[in-house]
Design a binder for these strands. Sequence first.
DNA 1: TGTTAGCACTCACTTTTATCGAGTGCTAAT
DNA 2: ATTAGCACTCGATAAAAGTGAGTGCTAACA
Lengths: 348, 348
Amino acid sequence: MALNDRKIQILQAIINDYIATAEPVGSRTIAKKYNLGISSATIRNEMSDLEEMGFIIQPHASAGRIPSDLGYRLYVDRLMQKRELKEEEQQFLQSVVARNISQIDYLMEETAKAISMLTNYTTLISEPVSKGAKLKQIRLLPLDSESILLVTATEGNYVKNHILKVSVVPEEEKLFELGREINAILKGCTINDIDQRIVGVLKGKLQEYSYILPALLSAVEQTARGAENIQVHLSGAKNILAFPEFSDIQRAKSLFQTLEQKEVLVTLLKENKDDAMQIMIGSENNLQSMKDCSVITTTYKMGDGTRGTIGILGPTRMDYSQVVSVLNGMVKNIENVLKALKEEKKDS
Amino acid sequence: MALNDRKIQILQAIINDYIATAEPVGSRTIAKKYNLGISSATIRNEMSDLEEMGFIIQPHASAGRIPSDLGYRLYVDRLMQKRELKEEEQQFLQSVVARNISQIDYLMEETAKAISMLTNYTTLISEPVSKGAKLKQIRLLPLDSESILLVTATEGNYVKNHILKVSVVPEEEKLFELGREINAILKGCTINDIDQRIVGVLKGKLQEYSYILPALLSAVEQTARGAENIQVHLSGAKNILAFPEFSDIQRAKSLFQTLEQKEVLVTLLKENKDDAMQIMIGSENNLQSMKDCSVITTTYKMGDGTRGTIGILGPTRMDYSQVVSVLNGMVKNIENVLKALKEEKKDS
DNA sequence: TGTTAGCACTCACTTTTATCGAGTGCTAAT
DNA sequence: ATTAGCACTCGATAAAAGTGAGTGCTAACA
């Protein structure tokens, strides 16, 4: 049986209608709403074929048809039309990125929020990761009479602060000097490189302050581990409640539970191995609680070559075209803002 | 009509049963389950009185009774028994606090998570706030060939990092010196103190790097504003779905929407003006979508005198006794860990 | 006078039955 | 190949009937 033009037109009509209404689409509806110049009976015959081919499903005998995962797949691969973002949407995304570009964690958080707001779907973002991150900067700054600020940064510019409580804070110059020495010792190390010998050397350098060593080491370790752990930001999960496919509270709950497991999200995002946009439809992801969901992912590159992944999750009946355009817009934005930052540097 | 002992016993039975089952409690249930030594008919008479007094409500004519807000109020003020945390619960909380005590934002986030996990309710936490925060530390550190790390801290030890992109990073010593000078200029200023004159001075100091000034100022401003803005952490909102009072998806959605508005949360937490534990029952908070919810708040003090608020939100039918003990345990924990930190310093 | 057994009554909830209508598949005519 | 026509299916909605937990009232009892 051939998938001729007319069948495709009908399939497209079914998908469009179902995306818009979430109701099974009948032959008469198509005949009336979409002027294909054929009668409902003819449409019925074609629909029967489409069902046989696996592109649409009849939920029960006297209902209209809904697209199957395979139907959506065809739609996404061959039928879907690219849509451009509206100017104001573009602007909105851009302003969010520009406002947060200097702090990766805020950028992720705010970007996720912005995308959820724009699409009404759920957004997942993973931060760029550096494996076996080497320490790059370790510094001490005085804060107040009992606190020292420890700043640690790893390659990939993952930065973290820790406040160390001490009884006596060394005088400023002395503290800087201490920081510089610690930095010299630890710079370039990964967390695994820090052995007894190095700890010994540190202890020697710290002298009367050696009691802060455990806190210091633990802070350094936390930073290093943090840089290696993939951070995932989730936003707009509550949007799920708005979709009729989750008006059953049990389903909603089980999806929420799934989304709470960070590892699951990471796995989901990791599916995207190349840089292209990737669309996972329905049970293409292997999670029971997400069999009625689709996830669209794409990667973005920060200036330094590290890459993260953005994913948008919605019902299989999601507006693929919109989501794709928002994701494209977002990635372009991040790149643009980074480029603009570079220009700025050159200009001045 | 007097609220004699027997009435109180019956009220207590109703509340206990309703908290456990979420089903209206009938006279026969009480007669059978709680051995009060009186018949269901007598209980019926007493219940009729309790209803007249406003402590219980009959949802409809042929149903049992449920506690009214007033009933819960009486329970909370006079009947509720203090419960001690189990050893393992105590330990769990303590480990969370100990692990995160050095970073206020993580502490809040993780504490919120821990409490939600322990209670199965929703947790809100606001961070300590400093009004008109003065800048305390501004430093520059080299990160890589195109990035400078700007560390800013305000009074109250609110610390933030920003990465500034530049075309040429000054040599390390030079950069420190720059940082030191900027610090000298800005130290002690609030964000409002930074006027044209100061900007001019900064510009002079920065010389060929003056193009980073906008980014630097914006970063400083962000930090200062951040210190002034109340940060609120919300955790375990999805727990709400588990309660039968929110099995109606509309209600759940509207509560979720309310919880998404940060200002609402802040207002809620701000209700707690003194340091004592405060219990807001049902419509005592004036939010329509939360009229079936209670919020229990308490404040915690960080070492430096700043204070934040922890709130637990659940259905009015929540386990007040458990929540109170968890909150007490948590506050005690934070204090203990802080004290332990101080001891540690002295010992060494 | 307080307590209790007994009983009629109420009303949400469940089950059953009936009705409706959107949508299909098949057949026969065009 | 297309389509009008029609019998048929079956979920959804509505109406009717039945069930039972729980009440309030009354009258008897200690």
